[in-house]
């Protein structure tokens, strides 16, 4: 395994484009090192991107959104004074991953590019409408987060392309997001099911809604119909029932050691109700 620590994204991209065999980018390393240790993936080329300037920065964008450098960690997100006020669901989803120790290293972009169906931060980023910026041999482009994973362990990034930053849109007034996952313990598990919802309201009435589910299909599922079910209504029992049905209907999970099809489908509905209520309360002004 060769290790490189480039100083610019261009250099990193060129290294990756020219590399033979398996290439991995190293940010937090909480997936790369586990795969290395478990003999699942031993990269031939490992490109550490943390020395590139700006990769640790969390900055406001001009339009009032947020830009997170590619090496920003979960701990840095949780500790940021303002990010969690705008996007509590995204920050909490990231914070659920692993231990305090893992939080010190793990990054949401790594979580996304590792392309696990159960990645906690991904449904939250999708619900928030986050966009991933990449650069590659053909220049820079922005990809909506939901279009990044292509299947378990696979992304739509091309050879030589490297993620540079994540952009969260402006929160805007009267909006709220939330993420919950189900795990057997209270900590340290991989999500059996995850659910994120991002809402805006006017008064009691929902004006926009985005929902995404994790660990119920090969990639995170965007439940587009959630908007139809919620927009123009308050979050009453009927809306919650509709949302539950929608969540259950959107699942295409597998039976595995972490959960059955039946349990995952059922629990997706339960989480959808609970997450919707939190997001709704937040949108109406409840503090995260």
């Amino acid at each position: 395994m060769q290790y490189f620590k480039p100083a610019t994204f261009e250099e990193a991209s060129a290294l990756a484009a020219g590399a033979e065999g398996i290439t991995r980018f190293l940010a937090g390393g909480t997936d790369v090192l586990v795969q290395l240790r478990s003999d699942l993936v031993t990269p031939d080329v490992l490109i550490d991107i943390k020395a590139i300037p700006g990769t640790h920065d969390i900055t406001r964008t001009e339009d009032g959104g947020w830009r997170l450098g590619v090496a920003v960690t979960g701990a840095e997100m949780s500790e940021h004074p303002d990010l969690g006020r705008d996007w509590p669901g995204v920050v909490e989803a990231m914070d659920l991953i692993g231990s305090t120790q893992v939080q010190g290293r793990a990054t949401p972009i790594g979580n996304l590019c590792n392309a696990s169906p159960a990645a906690d931060s991904v449904p939250a980023m999708i619900a928030a409408g986050a966009v991933l910026s990449v650069v590659g041999p053909d220049g820079a482009r922005d990809i909506p987060v939901e279009e990044v994973p292509a299947g378990p362990g696979k992304t739509t990034l091309k050879k030589g392309e490297i993620a540079t930053a994540l952009t969260l849109p402006p929160r805007g007034a009267q909006g709220g997001d939330a993420y919950l996952r189900f795990i057997p313990r209270t900590e340290m598990d991989i999500a059996v099911v995850g659910c994120a919802i991002n809402l805006t309201v006017e008064g009691e009435v929902i004006t926009s809604a985005r929902m995404a589910l994790g660990a119920v299909a090969p990639t995170a599922v965007v439940v587009h119909a959630a908007a139809d079910a919620l927009v123009g209504r308050t979050l009453d029992d009927a809306a919650l029932k509709a949302l539950t049905d929608l969540a259950e209907a959107s699942c295409n999970p597998i039976d595995d050691k972490r959960g059955t099809v039946k349990f995952r489908t059922h629990t997706a509905g339960v989480l959808a109700r609970r997450v919707a209520q939190i997001a709704y309360d937040r949108a109406k002004g409840a503090k995260a």
Binding site: G29, L33, R37, G104, R105
Partner: peptide, 8 residues
């Protein structure tokens, strides 16, 4: 705070 097994 980190796990030293998860850092090269």
């Amino acid at each position: 705070l980190v796990c030293s097994c998860l850092m090269l």
